[in-house]
Design a protein around this nucleic acid. Structure first.
Length: 120
DNA sequence: GTTATGACTGCGA
DNA sequence: TTCGCAGCCATAA
């Protein structure tokens, strides 16, 4: 069963991001096997608003820790407030201590009984 | 069916 | 240092 597409996997990974943590599009994409498919990750999140349940897309930022998709949340401070609500400090649309809060699925989920990457 | 775009990333000049 | 281009997957027109 792992017929899930790249698209579906994004939802799974993003949904697994623990509160107070953030990750990058490239990290997710890399975990899925295509580090350069980060664009698709962002695109998936864009649809997440009208697709799957709630996707903590606010925990997903670009490699610089910059809230690049903030303007997709309705208003610019929405993403920031969501992050601060989880204890993540955001300064000028940039995640503070981004590398410290960085949550890498290929690391955190490495070895865990995840849903994908185990169809063999 | 093809073409264009998108919340990205990495490398080259 | 900054600027520009190419690559990846999926959706929309």
């Amino acid at each position: 069963m792992k017929e899930e597409s790249f698209f579906e996997l994004v939802y799974d990974v993003v949904s697994l991001i623990p509160p107070g943590r953030v990750t990058s599009y490239g990290a997710i994409a890399r975990y899925l096997g295509s580090p350069q498919a980060a664009r698709t990750v962002g695109w998936a999140l864009n649809k997440s608003f009208s697709s799957a349940g709630f996707i903590p897309a606010h925990r997903v930022v670009n490699r610089n820790g910059l809230l690049t998709g903030k303007f997709h949340f309705g208003y610019f401070e929405a993403m920031k407030e969501l992050l601060e609500s989880e204890g993540i400090r955001v300064d000028h649309d940039c995640v503070v201590d981004f590398e410290r809060l960085f949550w890498d699925p290929s690391k955190e989920l490495d070895g865990l009984a995840f849903i994908i990457e185990e169809d063999e």
